[in-house]
Amino acid sequence: MLYVQKKNEDLSRGAFDLTTQMLRMNPEFYTVWNYRRHIFIQGIFPNSSPAAINELLSEDLGLTAAFLKQHPKVYWIWNHRRWCLEQVPDGPLDEDKDGWRMANWNKELFLVEKMLDVDPRNFHAWNYRRYVLASIPVRRSQVSELSYTTRKIESNFSNFSAWHQRTKVLASLWQAGELNVAQSREDELDLVKNAMYTDPDDQSVWIYHRWLIGDGDDPLLLQREIASIQELLDEQPDSKWCMESIVYYKTLLLRRHLSTMDTSVQQSLVGECFDLLSKLQYVDSNRKQRYIELSDEIKNTFL
């Protein structure tokens, strides 16, 4: 029935109510969400006052909040919340518009923090949090957001989304000159080292470490971190991520600083990479061909 109404461009309140029923049954019907918004824009909003529109939007925010409790990772629900928040009307409510917006954005931040308390690794919620923080009229301190990611990471080092959010926040703070880049990077390396030793098999920690190292311009930093990871490998001799990271950083050292190396140092680094890649073929046999190809690439590039 809804398909027929949509095809016939039915913009009535009855059609709108039917979308509500359908979405209660399955909030993943993205075509129903699209039809619902079409009814709003073409059928309901043109005949409603700004106050009535705000009330309708608030009702839909409440509806989607209820849906998210059962379906926290359905993209279409999050998307509809964004749409609602972007529909505050112009007109007689201009005086109250910023106040209405601020109240609703604060509610959104509260909601998303509750969602992340339940599931700290819900990347939909993290993406939405970035959207809210970028949109809220009175911006939240980036230092405060850094502290938030610290709490989430310290409660679970495997929270890839929190590490990713941290890269965004730190980049912003560094660019704004609100943190000393060298000192804060050292602090971050201490944090990530603690995470590595807690769970050396957690991929998110190693990805964050690579982000901190960057393009490898600092050879002393590279050498120090290689030595640190080697210490961990000595304790965890079958650690795939330790071996992969040492190969990655030694290759980076070769690529970025080859012109400053003696031939013997170069050959030693290449040989060490070969040894680790050979071991990885057995430790991580499902990716054996990848390690063979990496060995060939290093051989063709540096020998």
Rank of each mutant, 00 (worst) to 15 (best):
A125Q: 05
E59I: 06
A176L: 10
L133R: 01
V112I: 14
S245Q: 12
K279W: 03
L303T: 12
D201C: 10
R139G: 03
S264F: 06
I213K: 01
P120K: 04
R24L: 14
S204T: 08
S12K: 09
A52T: 13
E108F: 03
Q42T: 11
H71P: 01
N47K: 15
L68I: 09
E145Y: 00
L116A: 09
D199N: 14
L57D: 01
V247C: 15
K69H: 10
L232K: 13
R185T: 13
L57G: 00
N106L: 15
S155W: 03
G99A: 15
R151Y: 02
V32Q: 05
L280I: 12
L252S: 11
E188L: 08
E113M: 10
A65E: 12
D215C: 11
S278P: 01
N34T: 15
K114V: 07
P237E: 08
E28T: 15
I136W: 01
K288W: 05
R140F: 02
S228K: 13
V181W: 02
G43N: 05
L189C: 09
L23K: 03
N34C: 12
I246V: 15
K107D: 14
K240T: 14
D217W: 02
Y282C: 09
L258C: 13
K288Y: 06
E244P: 00
K299T: 07
D17C: 11
D262Q: 11
P237L: 13
F16E: 05
R101D: 08
S268W: 04
R121P: 00
K114C: 10
N159T: 06
S12W: 06
P46S: 11
L212N: 02
A134E: 07
G91S: 14
D117W: 05
D217G: 14
L133N: 02
Y197L: 10
D119Q: 12
S161M: 03
L56N: 08
L93P: 00
R151E: 08
W126Y: 05
T19H: 04
Y282P: 02
G62Y: 05
I246R: 01
R101A: 14
H71I: 06
R224S: 15
D90I: 11
L2G: 05
